[in-house]
Each structure stands twice: as structure tokens, then as C-alpha cells.
Design a protein around this nucleic acid. Structure first.
Lengths: 324, 324
DNA sequence: GATTGCATTGAAACGCATTTCATACATTAT
DNA sequence: ATAATGTATGAAATGCGTTTCAATGCAATC
């Protein structure tokens, strides 16, 4: 493939002039400009973008770290990031980590190696310290409350959101409440657990381990939850479910086990994914796509080195339907 | 940031030796090797990966072109690609196109510019010719039947799959059959339409335009379909639905309109997404994750320039449940 | 007529790792 | 003892676009 020097030779100008033409800079005579474009045409030339990246010291690529692409929670965030990235001429490099620390570190290393200009971490398992060690190489935004640490953050206050949910259930008369969560580690999960415990404490109920269902991510996990519930002597009367997907699974498999929702089991879930509307599940609307967009913008602003807001909290709201 | 020359200076060796150490090549004395690693440690050095990309002429990045990340059909393919890419040390650059030609071209240009070593096109709107023009810059695999064209392809024969579905519906006694599809253009869609028409012809029914529902992608599109059906004087008795998501929407909103499935409306859909199991929807299992994996492997093989199979057809199978 | 300033343009340096080629020494085979 | 291998190492070329700096040409200002 041709390079800029060949173009220069054919067009009878210097490489600097070719570069000027290619990048639309002024101060090039019309005729030379034309000569360059003609040579470009003739040789079917395209820039080698890796040389550009090297020379400029940046790539216009943002890394996106997430455990699974295939979960609506994450793919909605990515969608948001993607829309905004396109608007500003950025591309997205995907790092699917499966929550393995090694993969997360590899992703961060890509920031240090200048593979990406910035990083959005949708969810992580790696400790703070580790991540902070990389922020000198480029902006990193996390989709969680960083609790005052010096990292960028766009987040939903899951303590508040879960508390809101708990209060709603309690207000509806529930006292025996369980919950389903994707994992028990991670800021978001810890916050939710704290809200759960605090809410129960307020009504003098103590948390019951068997009513806490871990590893609930996908619709089919709802099936497992239903089966476990069926095997229990004492069931909760309500469940807070961290994902509409799982909630849908619980509702559907619960119904096929003969349960009426909410009479036999009330469900309050999170995300406000269209599936919750289809099933009339009461859910907490989480602005995931917006979270993605804001995460991108935060990175983008930090490139313009405007004084950026370090952390931005997004509001949730309860969508009352008929599963509670 | 330090570079390889500084490391060489500090370690008292040449840059070539540093490169050897960094890349684990033999023929370096133990002591020099150690000296290099020490210098690396001391300067907190990391390779500038853009220089590596430039020097090697490749990036170990594969481009993934798709219209929407946020649809289970595509995110499942991406998941498959991602798993396999990770295994072989490749990364994924996402190109969300929204089916805009301009964006698809931009993606292909990235192949020419050597931003990516190869490209997987999950779905496209751009013509063949255009894509073929880029295959000289790297392997391109499409997730559709390329019908003998000289492009790599991993595909599901949607004519057969749709025909299978039609025959199943017909066998169950249906003659008034409609279908829902994501878009009407595109190889896969055209193939499905052909199967639909051919199947109807066999039973001497003529296709009815109002029973063909376009733009059906997400669960909420099912709502629209139900509403349109409710407004019809003569409804079909069965619907072939190209996505489980839409099928789920139809089943759920249909039920809330008082329909019994399959008595009032039979539904046969595609994907075998877990939602179809939860709703007991009869569906055609499409090996989407496998398609992603195979697409990646095809690219990978073409790098090893083994003689590669140019096209691979994947089998589908009907999962009988109770929506027909 | 001299000075200031903008428009044009190219040489060369820069960003940085990889890889080839030549060289030097140490072994092993003949 | 000599040829043939293998080990070890560095200089220099290579991949390629961007950017700085100096220089030249030409028009406007004083």
C-alpha cells in the first residue's frame, strides 16, 4: 500500500503538504491541493491509521469494560455509550471480562499502552486501588458510586433505589421480603444489601439468608428462584428483584406453578425494560442508556479539559404496575 | 512516558535486545534479560501499542458491524464472537450502524486503514459490490448466505428455517398465516419472504399485505402488532415471528386482550431465546452464539492462511412448545 | 523604497517498536 | 586442527503520518 511519501512524489509536493491537504488545513495552493487528491485517487491511498495513532498519541477509541455483552442491563448502557461516541467521532473497544480480574487488568493495561484514550467501566470486580493506579493514563469513568474517590463516575444510588423499593413493599403491607441479585460483591450490590438490611431493621425484621438469591441475571434464573421458593416451608411474600429479566422469569414460572402475582408473591424489580411493561411488573426505572451517554460525555469533556463534574447521580423513579 | 530506547540505555543493551526480552525471544543472556526487566520496572514502562501496530502492520482487533447492540439477536452473536476472540487474544471494535450506509462504509474504511485486521458483519444494508471491494484489505465474514459470492460467510438458511416453520403451521391446520419481520430488506429477510410466499403458494393461498408486519424487533413491537390485529376485520390464525422478543410481546399483549394462545392466534417464532421457554413459545432454535464463534474462527483461520471453508451453514431445529 | 505580515512550502525531527543483517564468540562435529 | 553450528548482540532500516521550524514569495502599509 502506498504511503504519504509516494503521494508526495507523484503530486510533486512535500509530505507536509500532503498531510495538510489530507487534513484540510489551509495555506495550500489550489493546484497542489488538486494534485494531491489526484495522486490519492490514482494510488487508491488511505491513511494508515496506526501511524496516525502513533504520531498523535491518541486513538479516538474508548474502552468499554463489562462482564457480559449479552445482558440487557449492559447492552443498554453500551447502546447509550455507542450513540454518543458516534456523534463525537469515537469508536468503542469492547472488553468482556466475565468478572475475571485478569481480564479487567488487561483492559486497564490497554489504557496505559494507549490503545484507548479513555475507559468506561460498566461493572468490575477489581479493587479501587488498582483502578486508581491507571487514571494517570487517561480518564476512567465508572458506572457506580465511587464514594468520594478521585475517579469519574455516573451512577444510580442503589441504596436509595432499593430503599425506595423496600419502603414501597412495606407500605403495601409486606414484612417477609427477600431479594434477588446478580452478585453479592460490587458497590452496587453492597449498597442494595445495606438498604435491604436497613429497611428490615426499621420494621424489626431480621434478614433471612435463604430469601437472598444470588447469581440472578437472566430470565432463566427466575426459574431457579421459583423452584427454590417452591421447596421452602416458609416463603417471603414479596421479592425485590434487581433485574427485570429475572423478575419476568419469576413471574412466568411462578404463574405456571399456579401462583397469582402479587397475591401469592409480590415482585418489585429494576430497570424498566420493556419486558416489565409487557408483564405489568412494577419496576424502578433506571436510566441506563442515559448513563452510557453521560459516561461518554464525561470522558469527552475531560479531553477538552474543561472543569468536569467528577460524579453525577442519576435519578430513578418507581413505575407502579400490578406485580405488587 | 518512557520508550524502548530509554530502557535500552538504562539496561545497557541495544533496543533490539530490549525488544527480544519484551517479546520473550531466545538468545539473550540471563543477566541482560534481568537488566532489561529491572529497567522496565524502574521506569514503569509499557509498550506503546500503536507503535507495535504500525511496525507489525496488524492490530489483533476485529471489527464487528451491527445495527443495534441492544438487541438480543445481535448481542448474542457478539457474545459468541467475544468469547472466541478473547481465547485467541483478539479484541473487538464495535461499529453500531443503525443500518446507515455511511456508517457501514466508515466501518469498512477502518479495515482499509488497518484499524482492524478483519471484519464481521452481523447485518448490513450496503450492497455486495461495496463489501467485496474491501475484501482485499482483510477477511470479511458475513452472517448471512452470500449465495456463492466470494466472501466468507457463516449463516442460517432462513429460507429453509422459515419454510420449516410454515410447514409446521400448515400441518397444524393453519392457512391464514402472517408474519413479523425486523425489516424487509436484507438477504435474510428476502429469503424469509420468499419462503413465506412459496409456502402459501403450495396451499393455494395468496399472501396478504396487511398480515405482514415490518419493523418488528423488540418486545414492545409486539404491542403494536396486537393493536393492528385487533383493528382487523379478518385476522390470520397464525403468525410466524422472526424474533422471540416480538413473539413474547404478541403473546403477552394478546393475552391481556383476552386471546388464548394458540387457539385464537398461534405463534411460531425464531431464536430460542430463554424468553420463549418462559412463555412456552414454540420457536426455531438459531445457534447465534455459535454463529459468532464460527465467524471469528473463520477470520482467524484466514490469518493462518489455512485453506478455509468459505461458507458454513448452521442448522436450526424446531422447539415444540405450546404456542402453536 | 523600506517594512510588516500573511500565504506557501519543504526539510527534518518526532512518535516507537520490530526486524533484518552483520558481527563476534563459543561449541561441536569432522 | 578446521569447518560447521549455534548463541548472543547491536546498528540501522522499516512502518508512516504529524508537526515544528525556517525560508521564500508577494502584497499591503508607511
Amino acid at each position: 500500500m502506498a504511503n504519504i511519501r509516494e503521494i508526495a512524489k507523484i503530486a510533486g509536493v512535500s509530505v507536509a503538504t500532503v498531510s495538510r491537504v489530507l487534513n484540510g488545513y489551509p495555506y495550500v495552493k489550489e493546484e497542489k491541493r488538486n494534485a494531491v487528491w489526484e495522486a490519492v485517487e490514482k494510488l487508491n491511498y488511505t491513511k494508515n491509521i496506526n501511524a496516525v495513532h502513533l504520531a498523535k498519541g491518541k486513538t479516538s477509541i474508548i474502552g468499554v469494560v463489562l462482564p457480559y455483552v449479552n445482558h440487557p442491563y449492559f447492552s443498554t448502557i453500551v447502546e447509550g455509550i455507542s450513540i454518543e461516541a458516534l456523534r463525537y467521532g469515537y469508536h468503542l473497544l469492547l472488553f468482556q471480562t466475565n468478572y475475571e480480574e485478569k481480564k479487567e487488568i488487561e483492559a486497564l493495561e490497554m489504557l496505559k499502552m494507549k490503545q484507548v484514550d479513555g475507559m468506561i467501566i460498566c461493572s468490575r470486580t477489581l479493587g479501587w486501588k488498582f483502578i486508581e493506579a491507571y487514571k494517570e493514563y487517561g480518564p476512567i469513568v465508572l458506572c457506580e458510586d465511587v464514594k468520594g474517590r478521585d475517579l469519574l463516575s455516573v451512577y444510580i444510588n442503589h441504596y436509595e433505589a432499593f430503599m425506595l423499593g423496600m419502603e414501597y413493599l412495606i407500605e403495601k403491607g409486606h414484612r417477609k421480603i427477600g431479594y434477588c441479585i446478580g452478585r453479592t460483591t460490587g458497590t452496587n450490590s453492597k449498597d442494595r444489601e445495606a438498604a435491604y438490611r436497613d429497611a428490615l431493621r426499621k420494621i424489626n425484621e431480621s434478614p433471612r439468608q435463604e430469601w437472598i438469591f444470588d447469581h440472578c441475571l437472566y430470565i432463566e434464573d427466575g426459574k431457579r428462584v421459583v423452584n427454590e421458593l417452591l421447596a421452602m416451608r416458609e416463603k417471603p411474600t414479596a421479592l425485590l428483584v434487581s433485574s427485570d429479566q429475572v423478575a419476568a422469569g419469576i413471574v412466568l414460572w411462578g404463574q405456571s406453578a399456579g401462583w397469582r402475582i402479587p397475591e401469592d408473591l409480590a415482585i418489585l424489580s429494576f430497570d424498566n425494560h420493556p419486558i416489565s411493561e409487557a408483564l405489568q411488573i412494577t419496576t424502578m426505572d433506571l436510566p441506563l442508556s442515559i448513563m452510557g451517554k453521560k459516561a461518554f460525555r464525561m470522558i469527552y469533556h475531560s479531553f477538552q479539559n474543561n472543569e468536569t463534574v467528577k460524579a453525577e447521580k442519576l435519578e430513578v423513579r418507581l413505575i407502579e404496575r400490578s406485580s405488587v
